[in-house]
């Protein structure tokens, strides 16, 4: 039986916007297992982003519990959440979000800087992972010197470098043309086949269709497809 990576129990998130409280998520229950390739879909304003932020430990729920690898995340301090984000979660963004003044190698090394990995080890691991995404010959290029597809590969390398429990990809193909987008999706599939847990957040039904499991969020509630 596969290991459970994340378990959400009755997660609610309410935003206090002065006069009326706005309920972004209502009693979400969700289990994600190791090796899953999951898509979260939904129109904007559905609570899809809020769910991703909570799953990604960038935000805490108003009520309910979230267990990440058996540990209760919802009561952790900001510093503990930082450590969890650093070691157990990888992020891939629509706009790549690479640091512009650092070359690809340094960008990939960045999580290890905060993770306390020694400089020598950092370099070795970063080069290994760049080789895996096919960018080892571009390690000393700045992000703006690369194409969109290459930048997203570098961002994926950065997300994987700490060997996280799950990788979040927020509209990873949104800024890419169809062909490059397809290549990035291929890469995600390969990574999933290699055993990585991947959670894709998108509003594109075609992209979502390429995953193994889809969850639709509407008005803060889950509708499993």
């Amino acid at each position: 039986m596969p290991k459970t990576v994340v378990e959400l129990i009755d997660i609610c998130k309410t935003y206090d916007t002065g006069a009326a409280a706005f309920e972004a998520l209502h009693k979400i229950n969700l289990v994600i297992e190791e090796g899953e390739f999951l898509a979260i879909i939904g129109p904007s304003g559905s609570g899809k982003s809020t769910l991703m932020h909570i799953l990604g430990c960038l935000d805490t729920p108003t009520s309910g519990r979230m267990l990440l690898e058996g540990k209760d995340i919802s009561r952790m301090s900001a510093n503990e959440l930082s450590a969890v984000r650093n070691k157990r979660i990888g992020f891939v963004f629509q706009t790549f979000n690479l640091l512009p003044r650092f070359n690809i190698l340094q960008n990939v090394e960045l999580p290890m800087v905060y993770g306390g990995v020694s400089p020598f080890e950092r370099k070795r691991r970063a080069m290994d992972i760049l080789k895996m995404v096919g960018l080892d010959d571009r390690w000393n290029h700045l992000p703006q010197e690369l194409s969109g597809g290459q930048r997203q590969r570098a961002a994926i390398a950065r997300a994987l470098i700490m060997n996280p429990a799950m990788v979040f990809a927020d509209e990873p193909t949104g800024n890419l043309d169809t062909k490059t987008g397809a290549q990035i999706m291929e890469l995600f599939k390969e990574l999933n086949n290699a055993g990585h847990t991947i959670i894709l957040v998108t509003h594109d039904k075609d992209i979502a269709a390429q995953t193994k499991r889809q969850i639709e969020i509407r008005d803060g509630r889950i509708k499993e497809a």
């Binding site: 960038l58 900001a78 510093n79 984000r85 992020f91 979000n97």
Partner: peptide, 15 residues
């Protein structure tokens, strides 16, 4: 944005 990225990948407030 850079600060946001750093925080997302695990920088603590003190960092």
């Amino acid at each position: 944005r850079e600060i946001g990225i750093r925080k997302a990948i695990g920088a603590r407030n003190i960092d």
